[in-house]
């Protein structure tokens, strides 16, 4: 059951139960919709970006504990970050959850995201963990959809 404890760490269970930054943004200039047709997970990511800085970010949607906690933790980390930092975090996160379970992970570099390291033991759940992040990356590109929800 160690793998299970690794996967469902307390932080993840907590964010699943009480997701942070859940809902829509009043002022939003970047948003995207993410969907994992395999398990029915669905997420909307809303961001307000000014001068390349993510001023605010929220999400909405339904999904498993891993995908919900991942979205919630992502929003708490991204607030105040520059766009290129957000992209860099996505890369580190993605590398970590898809890495070989026997390789070592630089947990320092991952910070709060280290709680998702257990996911790499569960190939079927990698998509759950990365859905919010992929959606966020799509939202960054969605500038032309400005002011949809303003």
């Amino acid at each position: 059951m160690n793998a299970l404890k690794e996967l469902y760490q307390q932080t993840i269970l907590d964010h699943n139960k009480n997701p942070r930054n859940f809902g829509e943004l009043e002022v939003c200039n970047h948003c995207a919709e993410g969907h994992n047709p395999l398990c029915g997970d669905h997420i909307d990511v809303f961001m307000n970006i000014e001068n390349d800085i993510i001023v605010d970010v929220k999400f909405k949607g339904a999904g498993c504990a891993i995908s919900k906690a991942s979205a919630s933790i992502m929003t708490t980390i991204l607030k105040g970050k520059r766009i290129e930092e957000a992209r860099r975090l996505f890369e580190s996160f993605h590398d970590a959850v898809t890495s070989d379970p026997n390789s070592t992970i630089d947990e320092m570099n991952l910070g709060k995201l280290a709680v998702f390291c257990g996911v790499r033991e569960f190939p079927a759940r990698v998509k759950c963990a990365s859905l919010a992040w992929h959606t966020m990356i799509n939202a960054l590109a969605n500038e032309e959809l400005l002011m949809v929800k303003a």
Partner: peptide
């Protein structure tokens, strides 16, 4: 009520 099927599946698999 409070557990998503995907989490149920992973747990049961273990």
């Amino acid at each position: 009520d409070f557990v998503h099927p995907h989490d149920v599946g992973t747990f049961l698999d273990l």
